[in-house]
């Protein structure tokens, strides 16, 4: 995540608003990408380091659709999301499902393998450089809000992200599908006993989780640059959001993602030379205090 110095005003108020704005936008992207990981890890107990791969694929798909075919952003987003959902669903059925119940080491190694293969394929197809996002004119440039200049596209990002998150919460809390997921997270044996087809549930949930990640990756292409090292470069952030937020939860990661987005942005603004050290020191302390995250059992 890069913040140009020129985007920062001199006054304190401007600084606070800017940090809040960039932090929230960043946090939302982190949340969209990581929430699926939290739910699938809580559901299947699978240590999936490769979740970032799906965010990256979403980014590549959307950028390619827009740059090559001239498709609009709002047409490219759902298409990219759909394509990656299918990829996620198929991978779950063919590969991931073979490793449920295997040791943590096997799952770590397998998902590392997936990361490396995806990095190689993406590099062979799109080359080693980061993919530039070409936004339509009306989304380029800055908007003036209360005397502070902020990039227009980030407003779209925040608004769109918020809409998706609300929809997600409604699905999770209010629909039968959501209830099934919650039941299976709580007690898989019981869920099976009352007739939930957990195998199918896993696949569908995994697909949706990867689809959300793809959406996050595509929407946030100018926040987290779309390049072949993406899944490795940002892995720490995704894993931290899930670990701090708590497995199987959709609210915990929201708090975690927003906090990390805000804290990381603030740190980089106030102490650019210290980078992300503080935030990781804080995460370190937090996980020692609550190893199962802020929503998990102590």
């Amino acid at each position: 995540m890069e913040i140009k110095k020129s985007e920062w005003g001199g006054e304190t108020m401007t600084a606070i608003v800017t940090v809040l704005f960039f932090g929230v936008a960043y946090g939302m992207i982190l949340y969209l990408i990581s929430v699926g990981l939290s739910v699938t890890m809580g559901l299947m107990g699978f240590v999936n380091l490769a979740h970032g791969v799906f965010a990256m694929l979403g980014g590549y798909a959307a950028v390619t659709l827009m740059n090559q075919t001239g498709m609009s952003l709002f047409a490219a987003l759902p298409l990219a999301c759909l394509a990656v959902t299918v990829v996620g669903f198929v991978l779950e059925r063919t590969l991931y499902s073979r490793l449920y119940g295997r040791s943590e080491l096997d799952q770590v190694l397998f998902s590392m393998g997936l990361i490396l293969i995806s990095m190689a394929l993406v590099r062979l197809i799109w080359g080693p450089m980061a993919q530039p996002v070409q936004l339509p004119d009306y989304l380029k440039g800055q908007s003036l809000v209360g005397g502070i200049e902020l990039p227009t596209y980030r407003f779209v990002l925040v608004a769109f992200g918020a809409a998706v998150i609300v929809a997600l919460w409604v699905i999770f809390e209010r629909t039968l599908f959501g209830a099934r997921i919650r039941a299976a997270v709580d007690n898989r044996g019981m869920a099976q006993a009352i007739g939930i087809d957990t195998g199918r549930l896993f696949a569908v949930t995994f697909g949706l989780g990867t689809g959300l990640a793809a959406l996050g990756g595509a929407l946030g292409a100018d926040v987290l640059a779309i390049a072949p090292n993406y899944p490795l470069h940002y892995i720490v952030y995704f894993m931290v959001v899930v670990a701090v937020g708590g497995l199987g939860s959709i609210r915990g990661p929201f708090i975690a993602a927003l906090s990390i987005g805000l804290a990381d942005t603030a740190c980089k603004y106030l102490l650019p030379e210290m980078g992300s050290v503080f935030i990781f020191a804080f995460v370190f302390a937090l996980l020692l205090w609550r190893p199962n995250g802020i929503t998990g059992k102590r």
Binding site: M239, A243, F284, L287
Partner: peptide, 24 residues
């Protein structure tokens, strides 16, 4: 003191911090 996911993430975070410190 932790295990599972928390340990994995802590091992990542610890190494990441050292890397950043050495870089700075």
């Amino acid at each position: 003191r932790t295990k599972g996911l928390a340990f994995l993430v802590l091992s990542l975070a610890a190494a990441f911090m050292l890397h950043e410190l050495a870089n700075m």
